[in-house]
Design a protein around this nucleic acid. Structure first.
Lengths: 224, 224
DNA sequence: CGATCGTTTGATCCGCATCAAGATAGGTGG
DNA sequence: CCACCTATCTTGATGCGGATCAAACGATCG
């Protein structure tokens, strides 16, 4: 079970930098943030489960969270990996079913802010524009991913993932360590561990080298 | 070029049924709808082009529209097929780039309502909840599609597509005609024509028969 | 009636999944 | 410090699904 952090002292500036709160008036932001409660979760702990009614949603304060989906055939698919400042469980808020479409688990130990559905509804006016922006981008990213799974090889998808990872996390292209295990990456990319491993050896074709957890990106082509 | 329909007399009840306008007060709805202008487009005509700045978006009044994306490698991918009552070009409205991420073309002859970016902004308050709902659903559908391309065979995806088509368009499972060409379906499903054709022959495994454009759905299993 | 478009069918090839062993790295206890 | 264990990753061999190339078929239309 997630553990409530009663005496946690967060950094206000960091919270003010959440994309969900961008452009809010100070009183709007304070009103919303005041409703949030801090929780910590250990590695592999679940924030919520697929099918659960959507009572809460989360903003990640530290660590990262894996979203995954169980198909009717019983295979588990990693749908996304979210990190600090990202929201988790928001798309369920607007779903007619009122339930989460995927489960969320801590990749490592995480700290999250929990908000109730009611506090979302109270601040809907202020939040809707930021949420719209977030969703619009997410639609396009998902679109791109669906596309990639049809038209790109495993090597290309891996290269693409590493470049985006490097940019998104502001890592040094001339040498950085993978923030996740390779098996997690494999499920995220919709391929088998073995395929990822073999793809890793062929990354030089794409101007990338990978040895263990260490990655070097030599060339940064235009295509995202 | 799209042709402006100056003396078009639409059905007000039909317009009131647009999901984007659900739950609006009458004056809000009238204010927004009053900003719309009717256009007609012939088969293969473009509503907008990938990379264009987002000046307008559309609601389909009649016919259907194909959205497609050109990858850097130059291959064209159908990202979605929208029909009457659906919006087109809305996700670009919220994109930081301010440009359309895909092109939109008329499948057959279509009639659309065109709205300017400004009229969207004017009615943002009233529309944001419906748009949020639309986007939330679209994220989940796209997610599912990305997933399907990894874990399902061509036959399964086709069966799945036909069942959803049948439900969404309220067609008779005991015999209906495909509303699109098979080649369009193939690009939508991310497979080659030949693959779709062969998959068609194997649909009986999934409780579906297809002969030419005619389809019969015998069994309707639980998995969507 | 040939011409064109959309579809089907056949033959072959490549990429990835799968099954099955090894290899490497961290962590624990003696 | 080394032996041991487990988790994570790599490597090899094989098979299947779908892409690709090529050709035939069917329908619609001037």
């Amino acid at each position: 079970m997630l553990q409530r952090l009663l005496f946690y002292t967060p950094c206000p500036d960091f919270i003010a930098g959440f994309p969900l709160l961008a452009g809010l008036q100070e009183h709007e932001r304070d009103a919303f943030v005041g409703e949030g409660r801090f929780f910590s979760g250990h590695k592999k702990e679940l924030l919520f489960r697929q099918g659960d009614p959507v009572k809460y949603f989360y903003i990640i304060y530290a660590g990262s969270v894996r979203l995954f989906h169980l198909t009717p055939e019983g295979c588990e698919v990693t749908t996304d990996i979210r990190t600090k400042r990202d929201t988790v469980g928001t798309s369920g808020l607007l779903e007619p079913t009122g339930t989460h479409h995927s489960s969320a688990e801590a990749v490592d130990d995480v700290v999250v802010m929990e908000f109730s559905r009611e506090s979302f509804e109270k601040s809907l006016r202020a939040l809707s524009f930021n949420l719209l922006t977030e969703f619009a981008q997410r639609v396009n990213v998902k679109q791109m991913e669906a596309e990639q799974r049809s038209v790109m090889t495993a090597v290309q998808r891996l290269a693409c993932f590493l470049r985006r990872l490097c940019v998104a996390n502001d890592l040094n292209p001339q040498g950085f360590d993978l923030p996740y295990s390779k098996s997690l990456m494999a499920t995220r990319l919709g391929m088998q561990m073995e395929t990822l491993s073999r793809a890793g050896a062929r990354l030089k074709e794409q101007g990338i080298s990978m040895k263990g957890k260490r990655v070097w990106i030599d060339a940064v082509p235009a295509n995202a």
